[in-house]
Amino acid sequence: MKIAVYGANGYQGRLVLTEAVRRGLNVVLVGRDAARLRHAAATVALSNPDIRLAGPDIRVAPADDHDALVAAFRAADAVVNCAGPFTPTGAAVVRAAIAASRHYVDTAGEQPYIKAVFDTFGARAQAAGVTVVPAANDACVPGDLIAALLAERLGPLEEITSVHLITGGGGPSRGSLRSLIESIDIIKAGGLVYDDGDWRAGLPARKTSIILPGSAQAVPVARFPLSEVVTIPRHVRVRHVEGLAEAALAARLSVPIDPSIIAGLPEGPDEQARATQRFTYLIDAVALDGRRARGVVEGPDTYGTTAVIAVESVRRLVAGSAKPGVLAPAQAYDPAAFLRSLLPHNVHWTIQEGEERTAGN
C-alpha cells in the first residue's frame, strides 16, 4: 500500500509520514518545494532510526497546479492532506485526488472548510468511485464514532453536545496558528450549530458549564466551531448538535494573531511538550424521551494522535469497502472497531448511560 502525503514537509505532515512508515506503508512525499520535502524525509529518518525511509519518492506539486497534483496522487493508492490552513487550498487538493481516482482524507479542523467539502464534492466523489473523509483528526473521528454508538443505544436524539478540553502540550504549531487566522471570525462567533435540519450561526449555547468525569465541579464552556458538528448530523437522527470548548481556551483562541510573528515561532511543540498533553472529549446525548448517555474519549498528544488517526483512516479506505462519496467517519468505518484500534496508542473511551458503564478496552 502506498499513500501520498500532501504537505509532508510540514509539522503535522512529518508526523503522518513517520506513522505511515512505522506501519510499513510506502509513501509519496508531495508538496511545493523539493528541497523541503527532501529535508523532511531526512529529518524523519534521523529522528526515527528504527524505521526505514530509503530513496523517498518526492513529487513537486503546488496546490494551484492541478495537473501536477493529479500526476503525483496517481503514484499512490490514496491521499492524506496535511497542508493547512485548508480554507484557501484544501478544495484544490480534494479536487485533484478525485480527478486521480484516489481516496482522500485530511487532518483539517476548520469547520467552514469541512462543511464546504461535504457540500461541494459529494457527487464528484461518487462518480469517481472514491471516498473522501475530511477532518481525520484527533477529535472529529473519535467524537463522530462515539456519537454513532450513543445513537445506537438511545435511538433518535434531541441533542448532542461535543466538548473539548485540552491541557499541557506547549503552543500550537505554525500551521495551526495559520488555520486560526483563517477561522478567526467564525471562532469569535462560536461556529455553526446544527438545529432543526440545517446548520446555523448565531444561536446561543444551550450549556455554559459542564461537569467533568469524576468531578463535582462545573467547568465554564463556550461555543466553539468543532468539526463533528458538521459530521454527526449526516448519520445520526438528531435535532440539535453544538460544539463547546473550555471557556478559557476559547477566549485564548479568539484573540487575533499577527501573521508576521508566526514565522519566528517554533514550528510546533517538541516531543517532550507533546508528551505532557492530555485531551478529554465529551459527547453528551439526550434522547427524544429524555434518556441521557455520555461518551468520553481521553488520550495524549493531539498532534501525534491525529497522525495515528489519519493513517488508520486512509489505510482502512484502501483496504476496506466504504461506499464512494464524501463521508463522515462513522459512515466510512465501523465505529467500535476503529475505536479499538486506538487503544494501543493510549486513546481510551467509555460510554455511560444511567448506572451502566461500557469501557472501550
Score class of each variant (00 low, 15 high):
residue 192 L to K: 00
residue 326 V to P: 07
residue 114 I to P: 08
residue 237 R to V: 13
residue 209 S to I: 08
residue 18 T to D: 10
residue 56 P to M: 03
residue 159 E to H: 13
residue 289 D to I: 14
residue 212 L to K: 08
residue 294 R to P: 15
residue 69 L to I: 14
residue 305 T to D: 03
residue 305 T to M: 03
residue 268 G to M: 06
residue 75 A to P: 14
residue 279 F to Y: 13
residue 161 T to F: 07
residue 156 P to Y: 05
residue 178 R to S: 09
residue 347 V to C: 07
residue 151 A to T: 14
residue 19 E to H: 06
residue 14 R to A: 11
residue 216 A to E: 14
residue 306 T to D: 08
residue 210 I to C: 11
residue 161 T to E: 14
residue 96 A to S: 09
residue 160 I to W: 01
residue 335 P to T: 06
residue 111 Q to N: 13
residue 343 L to M: 08
residue 85 P to Q: 09
residue 217 Q to I: 11
residue 324 P to A: 02
residue 292 R to T: 15
residue 224 F to Y: 15
residue 31 G to K: 01
residue 301 D to A: 02
residue 322 A to D: 02
residue 277 Q to K: 01
residue 44 V to E: 11
residue 184 I to Q: 08
residue 147 A to K: 05
residue 64 D to L: 12
residue 200 R to L: 12
residue 154 L to R: 06
residue 206 R to I: 15
residue 66 H to M: 11
residue 310 A to C: 10
residue 335 P to W: 01
residue 133 V to H: 00
residue 171 G to Q: 11
residue 201 A to V: 14
residue 60 V to H: 05
residue 346 N to A: 14
residue 272 Q to D: 11
residue 209 S to R: 00
residue 266 P to L: 02
residue 253 L to R: 02
residue 133 V to W: 00
residue 161 T to M: 02
residue 145 L to M: 10
residue 266 P to A: 07
residue 139 A to Q: 01
residue 174 R to F: 09
residue 298 E to Y: 07
residue 83 A to N: 09
residue 80 V to H: 03
residue 330 A to I: 13
residue 159 E to Y: 10
residue 283 I to K: 00
residue 271 E to P: 06
residue 229 V to S: 05
residue 107 T to G: 10
residue 95 R to D: 15
residue 96 A to H: 05
residue 126 Q to T: 09
residue 11 Y to M: 12
residue 18 T to Y: 04
residue 71 A to W: 00
residue 120 T to M: 03
residue 220 P to V: 10
residue 281 Y to E: 14
residue 107 T to N: 12
residue 355 E to Y: 06
residue 220 P to N: 06
residue 148 A to K: 06
residue 68 A to D: 12
residue 256 P to L: 09
residue 215 S to L: 00
residue 185 D to M: 01
residue 249 L to A: 13
residue 310 A to W: 05
residue 112 P to N: 11
residue 173 S to H: 05
residue 156 P to V: 13
residue 187 I to N: 05
residue 361 N to V: 15
residue 106 D to V: 13
residue 258 D to A: 08
residue 213 P to D: 05
residue 234 R to D: 09
residue 334 D to L: 02
residue 327 L to A: 11
residue 249 L to I: 10
residue 193 V to T: 14
residue 291 R to M: 10
residue 117 V to W: 05
residue 121 F to Y: 14
residue 289 D to V: 09
residue 190 G to P: 07
residue 276 T to V: 07
residue 152 E to H: 12
residue 31 G to L: 01
residue 241 V to N: 04
residue 323 K to V: 15
residue 298 E to G: 14
residue 21 V to W: 02
residue 166 I to V: 13
residue 178 R to I: 05
residue 257 I to G: 04
residue 143 G to W: 00
residue 269 P to F: 09
residue 4 A to C: 04
residue 289 D to Y: 08
residue 254 S to I: 02
residue 298 E to T: 15
residue 184 I to R: 01
residue 166 I to A: 01
residue 187 I to A: 12
residue 155 G to F: 05
residue 259 P to N: 10
residue 292 R to M: 03
residue 142 P to S: 04
residue 256 P to E: 01
residue 337 A to L: 04
residue 217 Q to G: 08
residue 360 G to Q: 00
residue 233 P to N: 01
